[in-house]
Design a protein around this nucleic acid. Structure first.
Lengths: 222, 222
DNA sequence: ATTTTTGTCGAACGTTCGTTCTAATAATAG
DNA sequence: CTATTATTAGAACGAACGTTCGACAAAAAT
């Protein structure tokens, strides 16, 4: 498996890379990724076998390996695509907003909207956080760190604008916890949609950090 | 494997259930549970093999099955013990406090203190949430629902006492998210201890729900 | 001292795992 | 219509899986 395998014939990947920019290969691979996401969502990465994945995709076990070289790479592709997309969309949305508080609300809304619209993929991203090894793992970790950085900066801006004082790290990670935990309990039938959820979590979080950040020393309140 | 196996000799479990109330068997089993928790923490339930567990326990593969009848039962024992203990301690602590806000702070402190003192077990409880099937699964789910109920009641009391209005469900599950997510990021060397963490998360959450629950209709704030 | 019980182990069971070989088909091009 | 390339599948690989068996040592009871 490791070292230099003597056979380079496989791994053609992109056809001629010419015009259509989305080859049949790419489209089929994307389909497989979707089916695989379903299976990983239901059984977890370790619990899902390649045979489960092939059955769900309607493709033979061997046929799968024409599209990707290992189960681990498959998980990597899912995570990379999901995470890249959510960061992309966030950057787009942040362009329109300047108010520090609103920018945080945009962050929360973007996260929850994408999370609930792609719940399965986001569970696979959140839950199978530390299963990728070596190169794959570090690449996903880098995107994660970047996403974290963005949120920290948004919060630091709010602190500066409002003269607040609190630990950005704990606040941000608490916020991530609130949002990411959703995959364990949200049911579209009974729970509110992303907009409503973002409103409420935004309220709790923003009023929380604003109020608690104001009092340098503890106040007895009333 | 299924059906009525002809051999009833195994499954003696508790020795004579008499005086010492903690037999050698129980003590050895508890040790194994601790080692197993470490392994599940590192590799996940599906990713950890019985051979991994036997190696960590310093006991032969076959020897393990003298103490429990399956890998799933082992996970069940870990989760049950962990969850039961945290609820027990909570009940004890709540006896001393009557103020609704303080009771919620007690809840948070109890959760975080136990979480950080037993981080591995708590990850195994949080992360391997839906892997137990049938009887095992429903029993753990029942404790979880009970724990959730307690928290909802604490929050409803606060709402009544302060005349607040917000969704208890979203608030509680947000709080659980904040707290449980810790297992993904908390490092004892760099992050604060449970008391400090409970203080800060308690601030964010309580000020958050209090402030956001006061305004029935949205205010433009400033 | 010997029987019974309690604890432990090496070896193996049958099954499933991720992956690969080989060869046959479908699509595309000349 | 052939040559070529992209795509699929059957069968098998060795390794690892959870679990069980039967024999055996240590401890406790008689």
């Amino acid at each position: 498996m490791a070292s230099a395998s003597p056979a380079p014939p496989r791994v053609s990947r992109r056809r001629r890379a010419a015009l259509p920019s989305e080859t049949r290969f790419d489209r089929r691979l994307a389909k497989i990724l979707t089916y695989a996401t379903d299976v990983f969502y239901e059984k977890g990465y370790e619990g899902a076998s390649m045979r489960d994945l092939s059955r769900a995709s309607g493709m033979s076990l061997a046929g799968m390996y024409y599209y990707f070289e290992s189960k681990e790479k498959l998980l990597y592709l899912i995570q990379k695509h999901t995470f890249t997309t959510i960061v992309e969309r966030l950057r787009e949305r942040l362009k329109d907003v300047t108010d520090p508080e609103q920018r945080i609300r945009v962050f929360i809304l973007n996260h929850l909207e994408y999370f609930l619209a792609n719940q399965k993929a986001m569970k696979v991203l959140s839950h199978e956080d530390d299963v990728l090894k070596n190169g794959f793992g570090t690449e996903i970790a880098a995107i994660k760190r970047e996403y974290y950085r963005i949120c920290i900066e948004l919060l630091d801006n709010l602190k500066r604008a409002k003269g607040l004082e609190f630990s950005s790290r704990i606040a941000v990670l608490s916020l991530f916890g609130m949002m990411n935990w959703i995959y364990t309990w949200h049911h579209p039938r009974v729970d509110a949609d992303a907009g409503e959820m973002a409103e409420q979590m935004g309220n709790i979080f923003l009023q929380g950090v604003c109020a608690s950040g104001k009092a340098q020393k503890k106040r007895s309140a009333n």
